[in-house]
């Protein structure tokens, strides 16, 4: 047996994920999210207008219902998008990476670096327009547990990936 120690650690001394300071994502992502949501809202509004016009003769009151209802839904949608951005963030520790998001349903996912299968740099068309990049982290925990950190500048994204890869390789060597 090699050098081995198994000292008990009081739970108060363990590193705490609740004390992590999360790095906020790039501000450009906020613009991107809002533009994306505006486009979706326009699509929704267009659908609502057509639906209203079609049923206007049968049910005249529908015009009020759909305009007020539609406005509230779109407003909430935009607000959640806006404030939700400030809840997103990532934190890198020596041995794991955490990502948090969600305004109404908040979620912190922490992936130990030793459990990462591989990582990817993803750049969609909108990302390229904004000069942003996402890091996608795959684990063996199934697709529901894969973590994607969006809204990173290409440089930071590459740095994160490099860091992860160096840790994975070191793990494989030892």
């Amino acid at each position: 047996m090699q050098e081995f120690s198994n000292a008990q650690i009081a739970s108060a001394d363990l590193p705490k994920i609740e004390d992590l300071t999360f790095t906020r994502l790039n501000r450009k992502l906020l613009t991107q999210i809002l533009i994306f949501r505006i486009i979706l809202s326009l699509g929704f509004a267009g659908f609502l207008v057509i639906f209203t016009l079609k049923n206007l003769e049968r049910i005249p009151q529908i015009i009020w219902a759909s305009s007020i209802g539609g406005a509230i839904i779109i407003l909430l949608f935009m607000l959640v998008g806006y404030f939700g951005f400030f809840k997103k963030g990532f934190a890198l520790r020596e041995k794991d990476i955490s990502y948090q998001r969600g305004l109404i349903f908040h979620k912190i996912t922490t992936v130990p670096l030793s459990r990462i299968q591989h990582s990817e740099l993803v750049r969609g068309p909108m990302d390229r327009m904004f000069g942003l990049s996402s890091v996608k982290i795959y684990t063996a925990g199934g697709s529901s547990s894969d973590v994607t950190i969006p809204g990173l500048t290409v440089e930071i994204a590459e740095n994160i990936r490099e860091y992860i890869n160096s840790k994975i390789e070191k793990d494989a060597d030892s």
Binding site: I108, T109, A140
Partner: peptide, 25 residues
């Protein structure tokens, strides 16, 4: 364990509760 998620909805936040999800292979 592969990774761990701590979930907290606004309703849970008021009551200081969380739901934990443990992902395995």
């Amino acid at each position: 364990v592969q990774n761990v998620a701590v979930n907290q909805s606004v309703f849970q936040k008021q009551r200081k509760l969380v739901s934990i999800k443990v992902y395995t292979a």
